[in-house]
Protein backbone atom coordinates (compact mmCIF):
# COMPACT_ATOMS: atom_id res chain seq x y z
CA UNK A 1 0.00 0.00 0.00
CA UNK A 2 1.18 3.50 -0.80
CA UNK A 3 2.31 5.77 2.00
CA UNK A 4 0.61 9.13 2.48
CA UNK A 5 3.86 10.91 1.62
CA UNK A 6 4.06 13.68 -0.95
CA UNK A 7 7.79 13.98 -1.27
CA UNK A 8 11.01 12.31 -0.19
CA UNK A 9 13.86 14.82 -0.23
CA UNK A 10 17.42 13.61 -0.64
CA UNK A 11 19.84 16.23 0.69
CA UNK A 12 23.49 16.07 -0.42
CA UNK A 13 24.93 16.89 2.95
CA UNK A 14 23.99 17.53 6.55
CA UNK A 15 23.70 21.29 6.04
CA UNK A 16 21.16 20.86 3.29
CA UNK A 17 19.24 18.34 5.36
CA UNK A 18 19.05 20.75 8.28
CA UNK A 19 17.83 23.54 5.98
CA UNK A 20 15.14 21.29 4.58
CA UNK A 21 14.00 20.31 8.05
CA UNK A 22 14.06 23.93 9.21
CA UNK A 23 12.17 25.28 6.22
CA UNK A 24 9.28 22.83 6.31
CA UNK A 25 7.81 22.15 9.73
CA UNK A 26 5.99 19.12 8.33
CA UNK A 27 9.23 17.48 7.18
CA UNK A 28 10.37 14.42 9.10
CA UNK A 29 13.81 12.82 8.88
CA UNK A 30 13.93 9.19 7.82
CA UNK A 31 16.80 6.73 7.91
CA UNK A 32 15.91 3.03 8.30
CA UNK A 33 12.21 3.79 8.46
CA UNK A 34 11.46 0.68 10.50
CA UNK A 35 9.24 2.57 12.93
CA UNK A 36 8.26 5.55 10.79
CA UNK A 37 6.99 3.63 7.77
CA UNK A 38 4.81 1.43 9.94
CA UNK A 39 3.35 4.49 11.65
CA UNK A 40 2.73 6.29 8.36
CA UNK A 41 1.08 3.26 6.87
CA UNK A 42 -1.22 2.89 9.87
CA UNK A 43 -1.95 6.64 9.72
CA UNK A 44 -0.69 6.96 13.27
CA UNK A 45 1.71 9.66 12.17
CA UNK A 46 1.46 12.41 9.60
CA UNK A 47 4.57 13.27 7.60
CA UNK A 48 3.89 14.57 4.11
CA UNK A 49 7.58 15.29 3.49
CA UNK A 50 10.41 12.93 4.37
CA UNK A 51 14.07 13.96 4.45
CA UNK A 52 16.35 11.01 3.80
CA UNK A 53 19.31 11.24 6.15
CA UNK A 54 20.51 7.70 5.50
CA UNK A 55 23.28 8.66 3.08
CA UNK A 56 24.89 11.64 4.80
CA UNK A 57 27.78 9.77 6.36
CA UNK A 58 26.17 9.79 9.79
CA UNK A 59 26.90 6.13 10.39
CA UNK A 60 30.44 6.31 11.81
CA UNK A 61 31.30 4.48 15.02
CA UNK A 62 34.60 5.64 16.56
CA UNK A 63 36.39 6.58 19.75
CA UNK A 64 36.95 10.32 19.68
CA UNK A 65 38.94 11.70 22.60
CA UNK A 66 37.41 10.27 25.74
CA UNK A 67 34.11 9.31 24.19
CA UNK A 68 32.68 6.60 22.01
CA UNK A 69 30.76 8.41 19.28
CA UNK A 70 28.10 6.59 17.29
CA UNK A 71 26.55 8.26 14.26
CA UNK A 72 22.79 8.59 14.33
CA UNK A 73 22.47 6.58 11.12
CA UNK A 74 24.57 3.67 12.39
CA UNK A 75 22.45 0.56 12.15
CA UNK A 76 21.65 -1.78 15.00
CA UNK A 77 23.54 -4.49 13.18
CA UNK A 78 26.70 -2.39 12.87
CA UNK A 79 26.45 -1.38 16.53
CA UNK A 80 25.96 -4.95 17.68
CA UNK A 81 29.02 -6.06 15.72
CA UNK A 82 31.28 -3.07 16.46
CA UNK A 83 34.39 -3.98 18.43
CA UNK A 84 34.50 -0.49 19.96
CA UNK A 85 30.90 -0.72 21.18
CA UNK A 86 31.44 -4.21 22.52
CA UNK A 87 34.47 -3.00 24.44
CA UNK A 88 33.14 0.27 25.85
CA UNK A 89 29.38 -0.22 25.92
CA UNK A 90 28.69 -3.97 25.83
CA UNK A 91 25.13 -3.50 27.10
CA UNK A 92 24.37 -1.33 24.09
CA UNK A 93 25.80 -3.96 21.75
CA UNK A 94 23.60 -6.57 23.41
CA UNK A 95 20.54 -4.35 23.12
CA UNK A 96 21.16 -3.48 19.48
CA UNK A 97 21.48 -7.18 18.68
CA UNK A 98 18.03 -7.86 20.10
CA UNK A 99 16.01 -5.20 18.29
CA UNK A 100 13.33 -6.88 16.19
CA UNK A 101 14.73 -9.42 13.78
CA UNK A 102 18.06 -9.31 11.98
CA UNK A 103 16.63 -7.75 8.80
CA UNK A 104 15.26 -4.97 10.98
CA UNK A 105 18.64 -4.58 12.68
CA UNK A 106 20.22 -4.05 9.27
CA UNK A 107 17.97 -1.04 8.61
CA UNK A 108 17.04 0.41 11.99
CA UNK A 109 19.32 3.16 13.27
CA UNK A 110 20.34 4.40 16.66
CA UNK A 111 19.08 7.93 16.01
CA UNK A 112 15.74 6.57 14.89
CA UNK A 113 15.40 4.32 17.90
CA UNK A 114 15.87 7.36 20.18
CA UNK A 115 13.84 9.87 18.16
CA UNK A 116 10.92 7.45 18.00
CA UNK A 117 10.85 7.68 21.81
CA UNK A 118 9.16 4.38 22.47
CA UNK A 119 9.10 3.53 26.19
CA UNK A 120 10.33 0.11 25.03
CA UNK A 121 13.23 1.40 22.88
CA UNK A 122 15.90 -1.22 23.43
CA UNK A 123 18.90 1.08 23.12
CA UNK A 124 17.61 3.61 25.64
CA UNK A 125 18.33 1.80 28.93
CA UNK A 126 21.99 1.06 28.14
CA UNK A 127 22.49 4.64 26.93
CA UNK A 128 20.87 5.97 30.10
CA UNK A 129 23.18 3.92 32.28
CA UNK A 130 26.19 4.91 30.20
CA UNK A 131 25.43 8.59 30.74
CA UNK A 132 25.21 9.14 27.00
CA UNK A 133 24.37 12.42 25.32
CA UNK A 134 22.91 13.05 21.90
CA UNK A 135 24.14 15.77 19.62
CA UNK A 136 21.24 17.59 18.03
CA UNK A 137 22.01 19.80 15.05
CA UNK A 138 20.09 22.71 13.57
CA UNK A 139 21.03 25.13 10.79
CA UNK A 140 22.86 27.57 13.03
CA UNK A 141 24.63 25.12 15.31
CA UNK A 142 24.26 22.14 17.54
CA UNK A 143 23.66 21.28 21.17
CA UNK A 144 24.15 18.30 23.40
CA UNK A 145 21.25 16.74 25.26
CA UNK A 146 21.72 14.02 27.87
CA UNK A 147 19.69 10.97 26.85
CA UNK A 148 18.18 11.30 30.32
CA UNK A 149 16.58 14.59 29.25
CA UNK A 150 15.70 13.57 25.71
CA UNK A 151 12.44 11.72 26.31
CA UNK A 152 9.29 13.60 27.19
CA UNK A 153 6.65 10.89 26.95
CA UNK A 154 5.57 7.99 24.75
CA UNK A 155 6.53 8.98 21.21
CA UNK A 156 7.67 12.50 22.11
CA UNK A 157 11.11 14.00 22.68
CA UNK A 158 12.42 17.38 23.75
CA UNK A 159 13.99 17.99 20.37
CA UNK A 160 12.96 21.35 18.97
CA UNK A 161 11.26 21.46 15.56
CA UNK A 162 13.89 21.08 12.88
CA UNK A 163 16.48 19.59 15.21
CA UNK A 164 18.16 16.42 14.04
CA UNK A 165 20.03 13.87 16.13
CA UNK A 166 23.40 13.46 14.42
CA UNK A 167 25.29 11.33 16.89
CA UNK A 168 25.31 9.76 20.32
CA UNK A 169 28.28 10.16 22.58
CA UNK A 170 29.18 7.75 25.38
CA UNK A 171 31.85 8.94 27.85
CA UNK A 172 34.71 6.52 28.42
CA UNK A 173 34.72 6.74 32.19
CA UNK A 174 37.49 4.48 33.42
CA UNK A 175 36.89 2.35 36.48
CA UNK A 176 39.17 2.67 39.53
CA UNK A 177 42.28 0.51 39.68
CA UNK A 178 41.45 -3.07 40.59
CA UNK A 179 37.80 -2.59 39.77
CA UNK A 180 35.82 -4.27 37.00
CA UNK A 181 33.31 -2.57 34.74
CA UNK A 182 29.89 -4.17 34.77
CA UNK A 183 27.61 -3.22 31.85
CA UNK A 184 24.63 -5.49 31.22
CA UNK A 185 21.34 -5.42 29.37
CA UNK A 186 18.46 -7.86 29.41
CA UNK A 187 15.07 -7.75 27.75
CA UNK A 188 11.99 -9.80 28.34
CA UNK A 189 9.14 -10.86 26.08
CA UNK A 190 6.89 -13.85 25.62
CA UNK A 191 8.94 -15.45 22.86
CA UNK A 192 12.64 -15.84 22.31
CA UNK A 193 13.15 -13.49 19.39
CA UNK A 194 11.46 -10.69 17.50
CA UNK A 195 9.73 -9.12 20.42
CA UNK A 196 8.97 -5.67 21.66
CA UNK A 197 10.25 -5.57 25.22
CA UNK A 198 7.67 -6.15 27.91
CA UNK A 199 10.38 -5.03 30.33
CA UNK A 200 14.02 -4.28 29.68
CA UNK A 201 16.75 -3.51 32.17
CA UNK A 202 20.29 -2.17 32.01
CA UNK A 203 22.81 -2.11 34.83
CA UNK A 204 26.18 -0.34 34.70
CA UNK A 205 28.51 -0.08 37.65
CA UNK A 206 32.05 -0.55 38.83
CA UNK A 207 32.64 -3.70 40.83
CA UNK A 208 35.42 -2.74 43.20
CA UNK A 209 38.19 -4.99 44.39
CA UNK A 210 36.48 -5.30 47.77
CA UNK A 211 33.40 -6.74 46.09
CA UNK A 212 31.19 -3.67 46.46
CA UNK A 213 29.51 -1.70 43.74
CA UNK A 214 30.29 1.92 42.93
CA UNK A 215 28.77 4.41 40.52
CA UNK A 216 25.70 2.20 40.17
CA UNK A 217 23.35 3.09 37.34
CA UNK A 218 20.18 1.22 36.54
CA UNK A 219 17.68 1.95 33.79
CA UNK A 220 14.39 0.30 32.92
CA UNK A 221 12.47 0.21 29.65
CA UNK A 222 8.76 -0.34 29.02
CA UNK A 223 7.88 0.26 32.66
CA UNK A 224 7.03 3.98 32.60
CA UNK A 225 5.97 6.58 30.00
CA UNK A 226 9.65 6.87 29.02
CA UNK A 227 12.71 4.73 29.64
CA UNK A 228 13.78 5.71 33.15
CA UNK A 229 16.75 5.65 35.47
CA UNK A 230 16.11 3.92 38.80
CA UNK A 231 17.61 6.18 41.50
CA UNK A 232 15.98 4.41 44.43
CA UNK A 233 17.38 1.03 43.42
CA UNK A 234 20.74 2.60 42.58
CA UNK A 235 21.12 4.17 46.02
CA UNK A 236 20.29 0.87 47.71
CA UNK A 237 23.15 -0.79 45.86
CA UNK A 238 25.76 1.97 46.02
CA UNK A 239 28.70 0.82 48.12
CA UNK A 240 27.30 -2.64 48.76
CA UNK A 241 28.07 -6.04 47.30
CA UNK A 242 25.64 -7.10 44.57
CA UNK A 243 24.78 -10.37 46.31
CA UNK A 244 23.04 -10.96 49.59
CA UNK A 245 20.39 -8.76 51.11
CA UNK A 246 20.99 -5.87 48.74
CA UNK A 247 19.50 -7.84 45.88
CA UNK A 248 16.05 -8.05 47.34
CA UNK A 249 16.17 -4.52 48.78
CA UNK A 250 17.07 -3.20 45.35
CA UNK A 251 14.26 -5.13 43.70
CA UNK A 252 11.87 -3.62 46.22
CA UNK A 253 13.25 -0.09 45.78
CA UNK A 254 12.95 -0.49 42.03
CA UNK A 255 9.18 -0.48 42.45
CA UNK A 256 9.40 3.21 43.41
CA UNK A 257 11.36 3.98 40.25
CA UNK A 258 8.91 2.57 37.75
CA UNK A 259 5.30 3.32 36.86
CA UNK A 260 4.09 0.65 34.46
CA UNK A 261 0.59 0.53 33.05
CA UNK A 262 -1.70 -2.27 31.89
CA UNK A 263 -1.57 -2.48 28.13
CA UNK A 264 -1.95 -4.92 25.29
CA UNK A 265 1.47 -6.45 25.90
CA UNK A 266 1.27 -7.04 29.65
CA UNK A 267 -0.44 -5.94 32.84
CA UNK A 268 1.36 -3.55 35.18
CA UNK A 269 1.62 -6.17 37.92
CA UNK A 270 3.51 -8.49 35.61
CA UNK A 271 5.87 -5.72 34.57
CA UNK A 272 6.61 -4.87 38.20
CA UNK A 273 7.35 -8.46 39.16
CA UNK A 274 9.37 -9.04 36.01
CA UNK A 275 11.48 -5.92 36.55
CA UNK A 276 12.22 -7.10 40.08
CA UNK A 277 13.17 -10.56 38.86
CA UNK A 278 15.39 -9.23 36.08
CA UNK A 279 17.26 -6.94 38.48
CA UNK A 280 17.59 -9.66 41.09
CA UNK A 281 19.02 -12.05 38.51
CA UNK A 282 21.42 -9.53 37.01
CA UNK A 283 22.75 -8.75 40.48
CA UNK A 284 23.08 -12.46 41.16
CA UNK A 285 25.05 -12.93 37.96
CA UNK A 286 27.28 -9.98 38.80
CA UNK A 287 27.99 -11.26 42.27
CA UNK A 288 28.90 -14.67 40.88
CA UNK A 289 31.30 -13.08 38.46
Amino acid sequence: MNLPVEAVLRPRDLGEALSMLAEDPSAVPVAGGTDLVVQLRARRRHAPVLVDIGALGLDRIAVEGNALVIGAAATMDSIARSAAVREHAPALATAAGQVGAWPIQCRATLGGNLANASPAADTAPPLLTAGATVTAAFPSGQRRIPVLDLFEGPGTTRLAPGELITSVSIPLDPVPAGARRVDRFVKLGPRREQIISVVSLAVRAALLADGTLADVRIAVGAAAPTPVRAPAAESVLEGRPPGGAARREAARALQEDIAPIDDIRAPARYRRLAAAVLLDRLLGEISHG
Binding site: P190, R252, A266, R269, Y270, R272, L273, A276, D280
Partner: peptide
Protein backbone atom coordinates in the same frame (compact mmCIF):
# COMPACT_ATOMS: atom_id res chain seq x y z
CA UNK B 1 -0.41 -19.75 29.13
CA UNK B 2 1.12 -16.35 28.54
CA UNK B 3 3.77 -15.20 31.04
CA UNK B 4 1.31 -12.98 32.95
CA UNK B 5 -1.19 -15.85 33.21
CA UNK B 6 1.45 -18.11 34.75
CA UNK B 7 2.69 -15.42 37.12
CA UNK B 8 -0.89 -14.63 38.13
CA UNK B 9 -1.63 -18.29 38.73
CA UNK B 10 1.27 -18.41 41.19
CA UNK B 11 -0.36 -15.60 43.14
CA UNK B 12 1.32 -14.99 46.46
CA UNK B 13 3.52 -18.02 45.83
CA UNK B 14 5.52 -15.88 43.42
CA UNK B 15 8.81 -15.24 45.22
CA UNK B 16 8.57 -11.51 44.65
CA UNK B 17 4.85 -11.07 45.29
CA UNK B 18 5.53 -9.49 48.68
CA UNK B 19 7.39 -6.62 46.98
CA UNK B 20 4.12 -5.32 45.61
Amino acid sequence: FTPPVIVDALGTAHPFADLL
